[in-house]
């Protein structure tokens, strides 16, 4: 073969082959390519969130009032604490990951196994917490009324405390025909049935003199505007349309539906990254356990999956800031 291959005279020089560009291996460099493109994807989402928020800057929900729950502490308003806990879990699993990479450089198989194990546990706790956070957000807590224009009206007592729909709604005798396919157009489904119908909420509101309505628009102090009793009654009678409990992609009892949309989309996409990260970590974990990298003589795969895992942590740092803090 030697005679048929022309020598270029560049062997051993930078472009002569056998060199590693930027002193990084092929796999690591490709992981960096992926991370940069994924970072641009996430920044596209977060910038879109910023766009929508600036578009409705005078009516955007305050995260402190939305995410106030901590597991096992029912009814204790504790804004931020649970997300802070989630952040710590993720940062800590990043630490165990980088310790695994370090142990891998020193070819210490047992240490890599343990650190990878803790990383996987941390990731699982994080994904579970996020599922809980979603469930709480979907369930909602106080309930609200949506106007014909799609704006949210929340209820307060005269002391300024939030009041749940269940506390004042009246039970009216109603009969409801359940829509079945044979009685009409088969593809028309019933709208979601809420715990209280709009009529029941309205009757309860009119009967309780101490209830006020809060709109989603901010007043001059940056607080949501609270209407007087007369204005509240007029608003409910003229504009109210349906009862909203919790949040989904169309309605959101906390305020603008776009807030819920972006929350589901961005934290969902991030949660999906964490989930795949955990799965890849598990694969690598078992490879470490059966000694694949010990035989290969290099733990670089741990380093590559570590890069991905730290990136997931990095994205969460930004999601945390722009969803919960700013």
């Amino acid at each position: 073969m030697d005679t048929t291959v022309a020598k270029t005279g560049t062997e051993g020089k930078t472009w002569g082959g056998g060199n590693r560009p930027l002193n990084a291996s092929y796999g690591k460099l490709m992981m960096w390519f992926f991370i940069v493109s994924d970072a641009l994807t996430f920044s596209g989402f977060i910038a879109a969130y910023g766009f929508s928020r600036f578009k409705f800057i005078d009516a955007w929900p305050i995260a402190d009032e939305v995410f106030t729950h901590v597991p096992f502490l029912h009814g204790v308003p504790a804004p931020m604490y649970y997300v802070a806990f989630m952040t710590f879990i993720l940062i800590f699993s990043s630490v165990t990951m980088v310790l695994a990479v370090d142990a891998g450089h020193k070819m210490q198989q047992r240490k890599v196994i343990w650190y990878m194990f803790f990383t996987i546990i941390g990731g699982a706790i994080f994904v579970g917490s996020q599922a809980w956070e979603w469930a709480t957000f979907i369930k909602g807590d106080y309930g609200a009324v949506e106007t014909k224009g799609g704006k949210i009206l929340q209820f307060l007592d005269t002391d300024g405390n939030r009041v749940a729909l269940a506390e004042f709604s009246e039970k009216l005798p109603t009969t409801r025909d359940i829509h079945v396919e044979q009685n009409g157009v088969w593809y028309e489904a019933e709208p979601t049935v809420t715990t209280y119908s709009y009529e029941e909420v309205k009757a309860g509101f009119l009967a309780n003199e101490n209830l006020l309505v809060r709109t989603q628009y901010y007043d001059d102090n940056g607080e949501p505007t609270v209407l007087t009793r007369e204005e509240s009654v007029a608003k409910i009678l003229n504009d109210g349309k349906l009862v909203v409990e919790g949040a989904n992609l169309r309605h959101n009892e906390y305020g603008h539906p776009l807030f819920a949309d972006f929350f589901f989309f961005i934290t969902g996409f991030h949660g999906f990254h964490v989930l795949t990260g955990v799965l890849i970590n598990i694969i690598i974990f078992f490879n470490v356990v059966i000694g694949t990298y010990e035989r290969r003589g290099s733990y670089e795969m741990v380093e590559k999956v570590g890069l991905y895992w730290h990136f997931v942590d990095l994205v969460w740092v930004f999601v945390f800031t722009f969803f919960y803090l700013v």
């Binding site: 970072a39 920044s43 910038a47 929508s52 600036f54 578009k55 800057i57």
Partner: peptide, 24 residues
């Protein structure tokens, strides 16, 4: 890695936030 991200992200954020504020 850093400059690719920084340039593109700053540009995107700048242009989208200005547009959002304009629509507001």
């Amino acid at each position: 890695v850093v400059w690719t991200g920084v340039f593109l992200i700053c540009y995107l954020i700048l242009i989208l936030l200005i547009e959002g504020d304009y629509i507001f």
